[in-house]
């Protein structure tokens, strides 16, 4: 089968933010020594492919490049070298909150974020009740998001992301916040989407969750893929190395 995500020779430069002057004053005060541009690589020559229906877990220590890789696949970060190609629409759930506006209600936020997640306007209105129901927010959907708990925010964001009918679903460490029952339903939903041919890439530090959800796991270390295989093998190798 044709792959739906192709990552080929991907290098991603990461610039340390503190080295960049934040204002003209700061820039002028540094002029004599010149701008120190310490650059290093967040990703070094990463290549892999994901088939439709695969659920790939990305594991590795903090700073190993998992989130950067996910952002590159999502198109948020352009590759410094190499290329990322995808075979269908993407839904990405990266960090908490999905950029909700605190003063707007859950429903108003859902309209904006839904559009950004790729749900056409008509379809969003038709699916709104379903989205709210999956997030279990029927009672509070017309209240400002600033009154929501972090779990409620994640539930709404996840519910929107999976309602977009993507062919690729990218999830970064967001399930850790929800309670057990919601996490269970998320895992069921992800598995269901994978069965219907969606390619899922899943970043998590919860290794038990990774092994129960994923069909394949990539281990990243210092920006490189050091291991690629079945969840059992890769996770065992990772735990041995720690």
């Amino acid at each position: 089968m044709a792959p739906t995500i192709v990552v080929r020779g991907l290098w991603e430069e990461f610039r340390v933010l503190q080295d960049r002057p934040g204002s003209v004053k700061e820039m002028l005060s540094r002029l004599p020594v010149g701008r120190e541009r310490r650059s290093n690589w967040a990703l070094r020559d990463v290549s892999f492919e994901v088939e439709p229906g695969e659920t790939v877990g990305l594991i590795g220590r903090n700073g190993s490049g998992k989130s950067t890789l996910l952002r590159c696949i999502a198109g948020i970060l352009p590759p410094t070298r190499g290329e990322v190609l995808v075979g269908g629409p993407i839904s990405s759930l990266i960090e908490l909150g999905a950029g909700f506006h605190p003063e707007l209600t859950g429903r108003e936020n859902a309209r904006v974020t839904g559009a950004l997640f790729g749900i056409p306007r008509r379809k969003l209105e038709a699916k709104m009740e379903e989205i709210v129901a999956f997030a279990e927010l029927e009672e509070v959907v017309d209240q400002p998001v600033r009154s929501y708990s972090s779990g409620m925010v994640v539930r709404l964001a996840f519910s929107l992301a999976v309602s977009a009918d993507p062919e690729i679903l990218l999830i970064d460490e967001v399930l850790a916040v929800g309670d057990q029952s919601f996490q269970r339903r998320c895992v069921d939903r992800i598995s269901g989407m994978a069965r219907s041919g969606v390619a899922v890439v899943f970043v998590s530090h919860q290794l038990d969750l990774v092994s129960s959800v994923c069909s394949r796991v990539l281990l990243l270390d210092d920006g490189s893929v050091v291991s690629d295989g079945s969840p059992l093998d890769v996770i065992a190798g990772y735990e041995r190395a720690q």
Binding site: A2, G75, V84, L85, P89, L104, V112, A115, R121
Partner: peptide
Amino acid sequence: NPRLQPPTRRSLVSSTDIFLALVSKELHV
């Protein structure tokens, strides 16, 4: 596969829908 494209070319919604959502958000806020 000719379907493969950079991720920035791939969206389910038209830019118009995103644009309208952003404008209406601005006005709401």
